[in-house]
Design a binder for these strands. Structure first.
Length: 470
RNA sequence: GGUCGGAUGGCCGAGAGGCGAGGCUCGGGACUGCAAAUCCCGCUACACGGGUUCAAAUCCCGUUCCGACCUCCA
């Protein structure tokens, strides 16, 4: 009996076939998902987070409708070369910070995990590191050499022969003959490779002394693309039902990965290729060079609930480029706050129409299985919020159920309030006292003073409350 | 140059040929000592030029502008 069954069919846009394709478990047991993870040489910015959220939403949805899921996400801690093709990104950063390269990888990997947690992104089943999978890569490279898909070049590096794989270019639409040799090239000398579009699977150490390993082809380190083939095939038992990543990885990373994997198993190794579009910030692509990089920690510094980023992302479809701004983050922050406040009230109602709850949840799932139409699904939530017909209890039950899908953590409150300095706490007490005595001149003065310290004071039926100004 | 996406009100943005998505801002009102929050009301847009249709933001043709990718990238 199949343990992974569902009445729903998730359809996602497959980059290779350029159409919506059903997501299914090829073995009928479990959905095997692979997502390209971070290169841990710097903090992941919110643009990176958008891609990681894409995996999270698919997985939450798949689990919600009954699938078992195995999700593997790699950590690239070696082999990813800088733009000059001369130095490994990790080693370059290690030099910059005067630290051991493994220390660098460790620091930024830890930060990656804590950022995911702040955004309520559920962890993968496993996060294999490139540096710990060298043997897997050796096995795969040997196999590719034996099969005639890879060769040792005149510089003793091992290269994949692009021409040996017939379907090369299917994901990106590139054709080998139009990939003309250009100035941006592999860092090795011209002539070491047999063909300009070939890429390195194993690079010889030369002068490099750190992050190198023995191999049948001499001391060296792996190329970037081979790690994902090695890990996905190993950890997911030679087949991937869904492979996720950012749109920029479409070429060359995923194109090359597909060539490697398919040649290794003599079959199509990945069923669906899904790519998330890029995030722009205030009109421009988020990039170090543009100077518009925003980190999760920047949101917290502005007293924004990091989950407002999650809501912003969900209000746009993953296949569209989206433009983020502080205004949209602020609006999302307010929406989450408002929902949380209302949920606190709604949960006191015992009047629940379960049939209605089921119907609405079903509608939301129907939106999501349609290529993750999160904006439409969220619109339903806003309608429910405003509804005159639905009881509070029904509203509460719907929000509670779908919170598992959206991951906005609406049933808990965001509290960074513990961090308030004591002198401001004193001002708050003074202000409350002045107001209770009817000294409005003094209480208003203190309220203005608190506002200057980014604290917004509100008077409700149950007395004074406050929030950080955003 | 090649390939692929876009263009929607003050701003952000969804859009399935036919009852004006939604949000933010702003204006008016209720509530409040005053604010804040909340609630109610208001603000009628689809780049341009043709075409198809009873009916086009949506489909077709053309034009202009913008963005992304094309061997660093999520």
């Amino acid at each position: 009996m199949k343990s992974s069954t569902t009445n729903y069919e998730i359809r996602l846009f497959d980059t290779k076939s350029r159409q919506l394709m059903p997501l299914t478990s090829s073995d009928g047991e479990i959905l095997r998902i692979y997502g390209c993870g971070p290169t841990v040489y710097r903090d992941a910015h919110v643009g990176n987070m958008r891609t990681f959220l894409l995996s999270d939403i698919v997985i939450r949805l798949a689990k919600f409708i009954g699938y078992k899921v195995k999700f593997i996400q790699n950590i690239t801690d070696v082999g990813h070369m800088s733009e000059d093709f001369i130095e490994d990104k990790i080693l370059a950063q290690a030099k910059k910070e005067s630290k051991d390269p493994y220390e660098i990888a460790k620091i930024y990997e830890a930060r990656f995990h804590s950022d995911l947690k702040l955004l309520n992104i559920n962890p993968a089943n496993n996060y294999p590191k490139a540096s710990e999978c060298i043997d897997l890569m050796h096995d795969l490279i040997s196999k590719l050499i034996t099969k005639g898909h890879a060769y040792v070049g005149s510089d003793n590096c091992v290269y994949f022969s692009a021409q040996s794989f017939e379907g090369y270019g299917a994901i990106s639409g590139n054709r080998l003959d139009s990939l003309k040799p250009g100035h941006k090239f592999e860092y090795t000398e011209e002539g070491a490779k047999r063909f300009h579009a070939d890429w390195a699977l194993w690079k010889v150490a030369e002068n490099r002394t750190e992050m190198i390993w023995n191999s049948p082809w001499g001391k060296g380190f792996p190329g970037w693309h081979i790690e994902c083939s090695a890990m996905s095939l190993h950890y997911l038992n030679n087949f991937v039902d869904l492979h996720l990543g950012g749109i920029d990885l479409r070429f060359p990373h995923h194109e090359n990965e597909r060539a490697q994997s398919n040649c290794a198993i003599n079959n199509e190794a990945v069923s669906l290729w899904v790519h998330g579009e890029h995030l722009l910030f205030e009109g421009r692509k988020m990039a170090k060079s543009a100077g518009n990089v925003v980190l999760v920690s920047d949101l917290i510094d502005r007293n924004l609930d990091p989950l407002c980023l999650r809501l912003c992302f969900l209000e746009n479809r993953y296949r569209s480029q989206m433009d983020l701004s502080w205004d949209s983050l602020k609006a999302a922050h307010q929406t989450i706050q408002r929902w949380r406040d209302k949920i606190l009230i709604w949960q006191n109602s015992k009047e629940i129409d379960l049939t209605e709850v089921k119907k609405i949840v079903n509608e939301i799932i129907t939106d999501l299985i349609d290529d993750l139409d999160t904006p439409r699904a969220l619109q339903k939530l806003r309608k429910i919020e405003k509804s005159q017909e639905l009881s509070d209890g029904t509203k509460f039950e719907v929000f509670k159920e779908v919170d598992v899908l959206f991951g906005l953590d609406l049933l808990n409150s965001f509290s960074s309030k513990a961090e308030i300095p004591s002198h401001l706490n004193e001002l708050l007490s003074k202000r409350a006292k002045a107001r209770s005595l009817g000294d409005f001149v003094e209480s208003d003065r203190l309220r203005d003073l608190l506002a200057e310290n980014n604290i917004l004071v509100k008077d409700g039926k149950d007395g004074q409350s406050w929030d950080w100004l955003i």
